[in-house]
Simulated assay, not measured.
Amino acid sequence: MEHFQDEASRTFDAEFSRLSSLVQERIQMEWRFHDREDFKVPGFHLLDAAVEFGKVLRAVYRHHLQEALQEEAVWMAAVFDSHGWGQDAFSLLLDSWNIAILGTIPSPECNLLAKPLQSLRAELPALFAAARERNQRKNQTSSSILLAPLLRGDLPEARKSLASLAELYGSPERVIIEGILRAMAEVGELWEQNRIEIYQEHLATETIRNLLAGLTAQFHSPRPETGKTALVSCSPGDSHALIPLALCTYLEIRGWKAKNLGGSLPAEQIARAARAMAPDALFLTFTTLSRLDDVLETKERVQAEGISCRIIVGGRGAQAARSLLGKNQILVAADFEEGFQLAMGVNVHA
């Protein structure tokens, strides 16, 4: 069976561009010929979601991560539901991939590839019910005192709120974890739930950058320096550079020297940076399963450069691929504190 799955995955890889084009064409035909008002709500975002879902499928097929596909589908259903795109739009996405696969790839490979999609299609009402419950739970949680000033881009008020959190939590690292990271997560969730405008998300992002810069200056090396250096980056192709910035600030406060590569660097450049800086640890943010092969490539390139540092990843995609990453000597951290402990050589799962 595994032989057939591998062969099916290779065929999917070879036909991916064609399959993706067919999926997008079918979705556009639905818009053009059926004039469905509910499909006009997501608009071209549905095309982007269809392409991203295809990249997730490629990782799932290649690495036999069918269970992780379920989690990704629940997350996507939550986004579709909160944005008002609806279950039918997600059905269109799944059906388009299913039809493209069955119409392009020969049997029996097409049947192996289509099976998980057909299972998701059958479970879609339950997936959306779980997504709505998840969104409702998030709506019921209390907001961080940082949230309102962040969404207004009110830096002076945000600094006052941060000072209150510093008095409450005492240590600067806890301010980052309990204050800034929590607020960042809330901003992300509000975007997922379509409850804030794009400009508000941008205001919040820039205000957080300023807060983090202030923290570094305020708590410069409050603990003895460890003599260790960390290299921090998004996974290749990922442009969400705020988490690496927050992690660098956290590590510097904990006594590390942290170098931030930001986002969108290819694996080759991350590996060259590792060769030049010889870090004790390389941290990669890994937000979606579609980046899995980029993360694995980065690890291979770093090792090819003769660098033997610990490689630590975190994020939703990392959790979904935890077992596979572990087999490839890549450590998975649930949060900043666990990442710090792993970088220090502590076996947090003992």
Rank of each mutant, 00 (worst) to 15 (best):
G153C: 01
S143W: 07
L247P: 00
K40Q: 09
N260T: 00
S107N: 10
G170A: 10
E52N: 13
A131T: 06
A89P: 02
H83I: 04
A230H: 10
F340W: 15
L324V: 04
T287G: 12
Q28T: 09
Q218A: 13
P244S: 11
R322N: 09
L324T: 00
V51P: 07
T285K: 04
N347D: 13
V295C: 05
P108W: 00
K55R: 14
E178Q: 15
K257Q: 10
L120H: 03
Q70F: 11
C248D: 02
V175W: 08
N139A: 14
N328Q: 15
E7N: 03
S96A: 12
T207S: 14
H64S: 15
Y250D: 02
S171M: 07
H34Q: 14
T288S: 15
E25R: 12
D6Q: 14
R32F: 08
G326N: 14
R18Y: 02
S142D: 13
L245F: 09
L292G: 04
A333D: 07
R275A: 11
D95K: 12
L265Q: 05
A78R: 13
F336S: 05
A271F: 00
A318W: 07
A278G: 03
S20A: 13
S142W: 03
I208A: 01
A350S: 12
V74E: 15
E206R: 15
A246V: 04
L120D: 04
V232H: 09
L102C: 05
T141W: 08
W85H: 04
L113G: 01
Q269W: 01
L190M: 12
A273H: 13
Y199L: 14
A333I: 06
A320N: 11
E300W: 04
L150R: 06
H349Q: 12
G227A: 03
S221E: 15
D88S: 14
P125G: 08
R223P: 02
E173N: 14
W75E: 13
L151E: 07
E268Y: 03
L150E: 04
A78N: 03
A59Y: 01
F4H: 07
P156Q: 07
V74C: 12
L292Q: 09
Q140C: 05
P156Y: 06
E25Q: 13
A273M: 10
H45L: 06
D88R: 15
I243V: 12
S143R: 15
F12H: 06
G306N: 08
A126G: 03
K327C: 08
Q140I: 01
E178F: 13
L102R: 15
E71Y: 10
P149H: 06
G188R: 02
R272Y: 04
T298R: 05
T104Y: 02
E133A: 14
A166N: 02
E252T: 00
W31S: 02
K299C: 01
Y61S: 11
Q28F: 06
I270G: 06
E72Q: 10
A183H: 07
S290M: 14
L127N: 01
W97D: 04
Q66V: 03
S233Y: 04
K257V: 10
G317I: 03
A114E: 11
